[in-house]
Design a protein around this nucleic acid. Structure first.
Length: 968
RNA sequence: GCGGGGGUCGCCAAGUCAGGUCAAAGGCGCGAGGCUUAGGACCUCGUGGCGAAGGCCUUCGUGGGUUCAAAUCCCACUCCCCGCACCA
């Protein structure tokens, strides 16, 4: 009886859509719940990794809907940004690698690709693709509110956002270095480079050493070591130029002069000279005034920074090595006509004190890492290691004047600042992980954008409000709260606009496009009005700031907005009904940026009552234990996965494989076994479709047990759902409950034709179907319908535990029976006896009295150490004498180690009538072990050949197994 | 370096916040049996060691400590993953 999941899914998706069950409108008579999830960037199809976040959000929305909330889950598409532009360009230029990805990996049809030379067509194509996937997954989205971030109305909304931020002085302007293609005259991000390398920009301090009236800027990452300079290095074979920089003469490598042009204006080359022309001359240290020689060194790369390096042999392994090399081969000097005597005088000058090292730490590192010479690759590693250590732990020596005693990390900043303000240095930016090439083939350089716009997340007043609100927000999982707090602390100014890309132009400087992390922080508010804007056919041009002020801030007079009054009021109603956002869902990679910006922008723009309530974050998905990536070829597009496994299977697999923040390891076996489970659940459930309703009056102890277990499952599942522990919810609602039902079956001798039993099983299944409905909605709708219900399971009421069905005595008794079965089976197994008769001996009254007394003592807070003494104070127990003492001694360890909850249950329940209970169920035991079963009181057993009765303990009857030992 | 997450009995993975039902759920894999001409599917049992009576012994990254009791709490150490931005 194989079930066609796809057919079933289509059936229910159509019905949901036809009946508009997931369309939410304001309804003041019902409480609302508003869930959003980060909208997708449509430059590729989604894969099962994306599905995790969206499925969890959907499950959450579905759960809240069943709990009676008027729940809204909308979706939109984030067209903003540059990657789509870059892709379009690559397609237009016939890039075969990308064509291959589109065609073979993503399955994009040929004629669609033909349109991809227009960037927005890529977005439109994948938009449709992603949306199709979401619909096929059965997400309960209100599609009427869909939009894209390049819709003109959305742009007006973003303009309003930026005007509002600006009016609160949260937008600043400044200089910002970025990776740059000198040929395209455009910034380059990772997606613009050959091999997808993210350009890393490093900041060098170029310190100006005076050279007979011109200056020689030595570029360094460690300006604080200026005190230890013994000489300057240049590459003797490289070409240097003397240039005019803002009226000042400087000498740098030829390559550096080109780069300086990108980083500042007014560079004019005056003359070229060879590196060797500089060698042997002296330059003046701008801080100490001492003169140091300029020496040739091969390791100096003219294409790195200024091509001039200051030598600090005490702390820089390269410098020490170069000096050593030169000393070993003084003829290098004579080759360039330099007096070989000058190097003899050069001695390293220590600048910082690094504990655990000699005054010349560079020497220590060279020795320990066995670096040969300046061209040895280990020199690089040695430099890194020493720099790390010094930066974080070393302190400046007394010889460094005002910087003495400062930590290197502090001193570095101070020296840099002081030198720059004294015009003795300037900043020079360089690509650190270069060379990196733009896709056009040009080498990426650094450009200093002087008029960059920022959102000032470093604003202390703003941070304070964010901190305070964050403290009130719910963060799921709670473990992530600290990370959010940290992010708020180190957030600084964030560049918020770019020169290119899709998106909204900055309203006051239209050469800039607002970048994607800045135009996606408050759009959850836009969903509340998107439908109205479309339905009322509002012309975007009338969406002035005052309209948004009215709708979102309740400011202004609606008669002067320039739009229809009823429309304005409808938008305001919609916003005030659904806002604040109750839960924001996203993957954990967005914690340090989007999710935090989201809080920042909300508290800056909206009134306090509309600030977000909760953030829910989930981990990612691995494929067969490996990260999904194009190069591994292990990405399964979502729609393909749906075709293979079905939506419900995917939903349950992804959410049941691990808890919230852990990575899920998806695999074919996981999906297949999940599918089998769901299939089994379905086939099992429909067998009970026509069962009678539960008949409370005729329920026996076992029925009460199952009914009680159902209530426990409801309680536990609900608690798990409340903190989005989807895995636990599925485990409980599906697997645990199923196990209980299976046990019930065995107890009924696998025969459930009895209408009464069928009724109770259906009752349990009906609860399970409701609880599974958020996870496997299509399958549950199908069962729900076959169970004879009208309406959708998707909006059925979430089950509530019925207190009258909770029956601790039934549960304790049933546990007793399971324990008895288990213990008996253990004995049979270990002894190898083939049982011909089994006898059980139940503990006598007096043991129960003591047992319960001990439990009560512990419950009353007695110290486990003195429990025995405490118990012996009791006159009734003393009266029993030795037997009692012996009994207490045997059971006290197990009484003491009993979990609190169990102890409480036993103390508060009425006593279990073991003997009667086992006698009633001796048929079951007898058929289980295929032999006669007898139950006796242990104080007067009618048959006890091996004298076992004495060891009986409450809830642990003594067992005697009689039979022939198996000879093997 | 800073910040965050993690290391559990073949693999995946619960359990840790609130110490005790924890030799430690569940899934996968593996082994035995049942069912089948066989395979698959399915069902039952087993899957740290020992055990002819329900027990005992050794385990939760490593080493200490607290406690009647530690996978769980405290301290130290170690290894792995991720982020440190202008990029979605």
């Amino acid at each position: 009886m194989s079930l066609d999941f796809r057919l079933l899914e289509e059936k229910w998706q159509k019905r949901w859509s036809d009946s508009k069950v997931f369309e939410a409108d304001p309804d003041p008579s019902k409480p609302k719940y508003y869930v959003t999830v980060a909208y997708p960037y449509p430059n590729a199809p989604q894969h099962i990794g994306h599905a995790r976040t969206y499925t969890l959000a959907d499950v959450h929305a579905r759960y809240m809907r069943m709990k009676g909330f008027n729940t809204l889950l909308p979706m939109a598409f984030h067209y903003t940004g540059t990657p789509i532009l870059a892709m379009s360009k690559r397609i237009a230029s016939g890039d075969t690698e990308l064509l291959h990805i589109f065609k073979d990996l993503y399955g994009v049809p040929e004629d669609a690709i033909k349109t991809f030379n227009v960037p927005v067509n890529i977005a439109r194509y994948f938009h449709r693709e992603i949306k199709g996937g979401m619909q096929e997954m059965g997400y309960s989205i209100d599609w009427r509110r869909e939009f894209t971030t390049i819709d003109p109305s959305y742009s007006k909304f973003i303009e309003w956002q930026f005007h509002t931020l600006s009016s609160k002085n949260l937008i600043t302007k400044g200089a910002h270095p970025i990776g740059w293609c000198p040929s395209d005259k455009n910034p380059v991000g990772q997606h613009d480079t050959q091999g997808d390398f993210e350009p890393e920009v490093g900041e060098f301090t170029a310190i100006k050493f005076d050279l007979d009236g011109t200056s020689l800027p030595t570029a360094t990452l460690r300006p604080e070591t200026i005190f230890g300079v013994t000489n300057i290095w240049i590459n003797p074979e490289a070409v240097y130029v003397e240039v005019d920089m803002k009226g000042e003469r400087i000498v740098v490598s030829k390559q550096a002069s080109t780069k300086l042009c990108e980083q500042m204006t007014c560079i004019a080359v005056i003359r070229e000279l060879k590196g060797s022309d500089l060698a042997g001359r002296y330059a003046t240290n701008p801080i100490s005034g001492s003169k140091v020689p300029i020496l040739p060194a091969e390791f100096v790369d003219p294409d790195n920074a200024t091509g001039v390096v200051m030598s600090v042999p005490a702390h820089a392994p390269y410098d020490l090595l170069a000096l050593r090399d030169i000393k070993a081969k003084p003829d290098i000097l004579s080759k360039y006509g330099i007096d070989t005597g000058i190097i003899a005088k050069i001695e390293p000058i220590p600048v910082v004190q690094l504990s655990g090292f000699s005054p010349i730490p560079a020497q220590d590192v060279i020795n320990s890492m066995k670096v040969k010479d300046q061209l040895d690759p280990r020199a690089e590693a040695a430099t890194k290691e020493l720099y790390q250590k010094e930066f974080h732990t070393a302190h400046m020596l007394p010889e460094t004047g005002k910087y003495a005693g400062l930590a290197v990390s502090k001193a570095k900043e101070m020296v840099k600042k002081d030198l720059i303000s004294a015009n003795k240095a300037f900043l020079f930016y360089e690509i650190l992980n270069g060379p990196i090439y733009c896709r056009c083939g040009a080498k990426v350089t650094v450009n200093l954008l002087s008029d960059q716009w920022f959102i000032n997340y470093g604003d202390e007043g703003w941070k304070e409000i964010v901190r305070e609100h964050l403290g009130r927000m719910s963060i799921l999982p709670e473990d992530l709260r600290q990370e959010f707090i940290n992010v708020v602390e180190w957030l600084r100014e964030k560049a918020c606009a770019r020169r290119s890309g899709l998106g909204t132009p900055l309203p006051w400087d239209r050469d800039w496009i607002i970048e994607s992390l800045s135009d996606s922080t408050i759009y959850m508010a836009y969903y509340t009005i998107a439908r109205i804007l479309r339905e009322a056919k509002i012309d975007p041009s009338v969406l002035s700031d005052s309209v948004f002020d009215y709708v979102f801030l309740g400011r202004g007079d609606h008669s002067k907005l320039g739009i229809d009054r009823s429309t304005a009021e409808a938008m305001r109603r919609e916003f005030t009904y659904f806002y604040p956002l109750d839960s924001r869902h996203s993957g954990r990679d967005l914690v340090p940026n989007h999710l935090t910006f989201f809080i920042f922008n909300h508290v800056a723009i909206f009134p306090e009552e509309y600030w977000p309530r909760q953030i829910a974050v989930n981990g990612s998905v691995l494929m067969d234990g490996k990260k999904m990536s194009k190069s591994f070829g292990n990405i399964i597009p979502l729609r393909k996965a749906i075709k293979i496994y079905g939506a419900d299977t995917l939903r349950v697999s992804i959410l049941s494989a691990s808890e919230l923040m852990q990575d899920v390891d998806f695999s074919d076996v996981l999906a297949k076994s999940t599918k089998a489970r769901l299939q089994e659940f379905y086939s099992f459930a429909i067998q009970y479709a026509d069962a009678d309703p539960i008949d409370v009056l005729s329920m026996d102890a076992l029925d009460h047990w199952l009914a009680s277990r159902v209530q426990k499952a409801i309680l536990q599942t609900t608690a798990a759902m409340d903190c989005l522990r989807a895995r636990e919810a599925i485990q409980t609602a599906l697997f645990a409950l199923q196990q209980d039902i299976m046990w019930y079956f065995r107890r009924r001798h696998n025969c459930c034709n009895d209408p009464k039993a069928r009724g109770i099983v259906k009752y349990a299944l009906e609860k399970a179907v409701r609880m599974m409905s958020p996870f496997a909605p299509h399958l549950c709708e199908e069962i729900w319908e076959q169970f004879g219900n009208t309406g959708f399971a998707s909006v059925a009421e979430w089950p509530q535990a019925e207190a009258s069905f909770i029956n601790e005595v039934a549960e304790i008794s049933e546990e007793l029976l399971k324990d008895v079965v288990e213990d008996t089976a253990e004995i049979v197994k270990v002894t190898g006896i083939v049982p011909s008769k089994i006898c059980y001996y139940c503990a006598p009254e007096w043991k129960w009295d003591i047992y319960l007394k001990l439990l009560a003592l512990l419950e009353g807070g007695a110290d486990p150490k003195t429990l025995i003494k405490e118990a012996m104070k009791d006159p009734d127990i003393r009266a029993r004498g030795g037997d009692a003492a012996k009994f207490i001694a045997t059971i006290s360890p197990c009484v003491v180690s009993m979990p609190k909850e169990q102890r409480r249950r036993l103390v508060s329940s009425i006593k279990i009538e073991e003997e009667a209970f086992l006698k009633v169920n001796s048929d079951f035991l007898s058929s289980y072990f295929r032999c006669p079963v007898e139950v006796y009181p242990s104080d007067s057993p009618a048959y006890d050949p091996k004298k076992k009765a004495g060891i009986a303990v409450p809830l642990r009857p003594a067992i005697y197994v009689e039979g022939s030992a198996c000879s093997e």
